[in-house]
Structure formats: structure tokens, C-alpha cells
């Protein structure tokens, strides 16, 4: 039994037919080819799969694709401008060396943007607390925290 969905992904209308147990991350990666969203733990604890659904950061391994029917989804591939100019948060991660292996990075950036949307002037303590849902094994978070603060300042401009 298949489920038919309509949603918007990175500004484009998408129609898809999926097995009911298909997760949103599986739809994105396997059917839409958006492999920038990564699966790190399958259980909603590492945050590598974070995307935006209707403007909120959501762990896409914890959501059935069917639950995103009608939703507006933005993934890491949808952040940069049409000419390739990176989103200020992406740019801040590069400038601050907020990534090493790059695997958690896409989810980290999506969470960071959501964090700043909710806390435009977040303190270091708030940034650290808000990043609880995203694991990074490479950076020790030091430069991620710096990047989020710098990205927040750039987003405010």
C-alpha cells in the first residue's frame, strides 16, 4: 500500500509515492537525491538529519514522509542563494572552522539557523544548550559555538 504526497522541498513542488513506513529522511535522500541530509543514529539523538519543516528544525529520521504531506521542507541544499552564495550561517561555519569531517555539519547548520531564528541574540550558554540535540565528534563544539554566534550576527544584518 503506497501513500501519495505533495510537499514543497527547497522551493519546488514535489509529488511522491512512498511506502507508508518511509521516513522523511529516506524520501529526501533516496527518492529526491538530496544526500546532504545525513543519518547518524536512526533514533533522533544525533541531529545529523535535521531539516526545516514549516520553518522549524526537525529530525527527519523521526518523521514519516507521510507526516510531511503539504509541508514546506528546506534542506541544506536549499540554503544558498541561486548564484551559489552561501547562507550567512554556512559562511560563518567556514570562517570559524566550525566543521571538520562534515558529516554532522549539515544538520548542525540547520539547527543553528533555527536556533538563531528563535534566539537572535543568543548567549554562548544558550547556544550550547540549544545545540544539545546535535552531536559532533570532531570539533569539541568550540568553533561551532563561535560560528553560530558569528552567523547570528550576520543574519541580523
Amino acid at each position: 500500500m503506497a501513500v501519495t504526497l505533495s510537499l514543497t522541498v527547497n522551493g519546488k513542488a514535489v509529488n511522491a509515492t512512498v511506502d507508508p513506513r518511509t521516513l522523511l529522511v529516506e524520501l529526501l535522500r533516496n527518492q529526491l537525491g538530496l544526500t546532504g541530509t545525513h543519518v547518524g543514529c536512526d533514533t533522533g539523538q544525533c541531529g545529523a538529519c535535521t531539516v526545516h519543516v514549516d520553518g522549524r528544525a526537525v529530525k527527519s529520521c523521526n518523521l514519516l514522509a507521510a507526516q510531511a504531506n503539504g509541508a514546506v521542507v528546506v534542506t541544506i541544499e536549499g540554503l544558498a542563494a541561486a548564484d551559489g552564495t552561501m547562507h550567512p550561517m554556512q559562511a560563518a561555519f567556514k570562517e570559524c572552522h566550525g566543521l571538520q569531517c562534515g558529516f554532522c555539519t549539515t544538520g548542525m547548520v540547520m539547527s543553528a539557523i533555527d536556533l538563531v531564528n528563535r534566539h537572535p541574540k543568543a548567549s554562548e550558554a544558550t547556544i550550547r544548550e540549544e545545540l544539545e540535540g546535535n552531536l559532533c565528534r570532531c570539533t569539541g563544539y568550540h568553533n561551532i559555538v563561535k560560528a553560530v554566534a558569528q552567523g547570528a550576527a550576520a543574519m541580523a544584518k
Binding site: T35, E77, Q90, K94, T105, T106, V109
Partner: peptide
Amino acid sequence: RRKEDGRFLTGTGQFTDD
């Protein structure tokens, strides 16, 4: 600044599962 960051920050890195 790192040459490799562009692909990782835009979701175009190629990990094995990709």
C-alpha cells in the same frame, strides 16, 4: 580557510551512503 568546506556546507559531500 579550508578548501573542502564548500561541499560539506552545501550538502554536496560524497559519503559512502551517498
